[in-house]
C-alpha cells in the first residue's frame, strides 16, 4: 500500500471525526486488553485480534441504518463493538462467563446479538458468506430496503461457496455488500502465495457484480465507498463488492508468532498508515480537537475497557445446567 495521500478536504464535521476516533480507539484498547487477559489465562482457546483493521468496520458502520444486518468470521470483536454491542458482554463471552453475549457458550468466535442485528461470529472460513446472502434474501423477501454487510477475509475469498453465493446473489439481486477485508495474510499464507488473480474484488465481474478496491486504513475512504455500495443495494440493484485493503498488526491468533512477515513490515504500517493516528492528525490539524480533548477521549475509552475487563472477571461461570440448554428452541 502506498503512503497515504492527504485526504481531500471534505465536509467532515468535528463531531463525526471524533466519533470515528472514539469508535476505533475503543476497538484497539479492547483488543489490547483481550490480549492481556489471554496472557493471564482468563481467555482460552482461539482469540483473533482485530488491531490494525479498525477503520474497516467503523467506516462501514457509519453507512448503516436501523435494521441493516452484519455477519462476519471469527475475527469478530471489532464488528461487535462497532455495531454498538456492549463491551462488557463481549469481554465476558471471551472469558466464558454467564454475562457474555452467548452466556459463555460461544466464545470469541461465536457471538450474536439479535437486537443489534449482528449474526455472528462464524468459525468455519467462508461459511458466513452464503449465510449473509441468506439474511439479505430475507430482507428482499419481506420487501424492505435493508442491506447485509457480509465480511470475509482474503483467505475465505478462495472458498468455493463464496462464488456459489456471488452467483445466486446477483441472480436474485440480493441486497448484500460483500466486504473482503484483505489484510494480506490468510493465517501465514500471503495473498500472493494463495492466488494469481491480481485482485479479489474483480472476481465478481464473472458474475456481473460491481465492486472496487478501498483504502482500509482511511476511515473516510471506507465510509465513502460504503455509502456508494449501500446506495446500490438499497436501490435494488443487487450485490456489491468492497475489497478493503487493511492490515492486522498482531498474529493470526494469539499463538501465532507471525514469522511469515518482517517486523519492519509491521512497523512500517503502524507508523505510516495507522488508521487511528490518521484521524488523530485530521482532528488536530483541522483544529477539530485539542490534545486535551483527545486525552479525555483516551481516558474515557480506557475506563470503558477496564470496566469491561472487570465485569468479565467478576461475572460467574455459567451454571452447570447450562450445558443442557439452548440445544432446541
Amino acid at each position: 500500500m502506498a503512503t497515504r495521500k492527504p485526504t481531500a478536504k471534505s465536509n467532515v464535521s468535528a463531531e463525526e471525526l471524533q466519533s470515528y476516533y472514539r469508535d476505533m480507539l475503543l476497538i484497539r484498547r479492547f483488543e489490547e486488553k483481550a490480549g492481556q487477559l489471554y496472557g493471564m489465562g482468563l481467555i482460552g482457546g482461539f482469540c483473533h485480534l482485530y488491531i490494525g483493521q479498525e477503520a474497516v468496520v467503523v467506516g462501514l458502520e457509519a453507512t448503516a441504518k436501523e435494521g441493516d444486518k452484519r455477519i462476519t468470521s471469527y475475527r469478530d470483536h471489532g464488528h461487535m463493538l462497532a455495531c454498538g454491542m456492549d463491551p462488557k458482554g463481549v469481554m465476558a463471552e471471551l472469558t466464558g462467563r454467564e454475562g457474555g453475549y452467548s452466556r459463555g457458550k460461544g466464545g470469541s468466535m461465536h457471538m450474536f446479538s439479535k437486537e443489534k442485528h449482528f449474526y455472528g461470529g462464524h468459525g468455519i472460513v467462508g461459511a458466513q458468506v452464503p449465510l449473509g446472502a441468506g439474511l439479505a434474501f430475507s430482507d428482499k423477501y419481506k420487501g424492505n430496503d435493508n442491506v447485509t454487510f457480509t465480511y470475509f477475509g482474503d483467505g475465505a475469498a478462495n472458498q468455493g461457496q463464496v462464488y456459489e453465493t456471488y452467483n445466486m446473489a446477483m441472480l436474485w439481486d440480493l441486497p448484500v455488500i460483500f466486504v473482503i477485508e484483505n489484510n494480506k495474510y490468510a493465517m501465514g499464507t500471503s495473498v500472493q502465495r494463495a492466488t494469481k488473480s491480481p485482485s479479489l474484488w474483480e472476481r465478481g465481474a464473472a458474475y456481473g457484480i460491481k465492486g472496487e478496491e478501498v483504502d482500509g486504513m482511511d476511515v473516510l475512504a471506507v465510509k465513502a465507498a460504503g455509502e456508494k455500495a449501500v446506495a446500490h443495494c438499497r436501490a435494488g440493484k443487487g450485490p456489491y463488492i468492497l475489497e478493503v485493503m487493511t492490515y492486522r498488526y498482531r498474529g493470526h491468533s494469539m499463538s501465532d508468532p507471525a514469522k511469515y512477515r518482517t517486523r519492519d513490515e509491521v512497523q512500517k504500517m503502524r507508523t505510516e498508515r495507522d488508521a487511528i493516528e490518521h484521524v488523530r492528525e485530521l482532528l488536530l490539524q483541522g483544529k477539530h480537537a485539542t490534545e486535551d480533548d483527545l486525552k479525555a477521549i483516551d481516558k474515557e475509552i480506557k475506563a470503558i475497557v477496564n470496566e469491561a475487563a472487570e465485569f468479565s472477571k467478576e461475572s460467574p461461570e455459567p451454571a452447570l445446567d447450562e450445558l443442557w440448554t439452548d440445544i432446541y428452541a
Binding site: I71, Y119, A133, G134, L135, A136, F137, S138
Partner: peptide, 12 residues
C-alpha cells in the same frame, strides 16, 4: 451455497 442461503434466511 443454497443450503447456506437457506440457513441465513432462517436466521433472518
Amino acid at each position: 451455497g443454497f443450503a447456506g442461503i437457506g440457513v441465513g434466511a432462517a436466521f433472518g
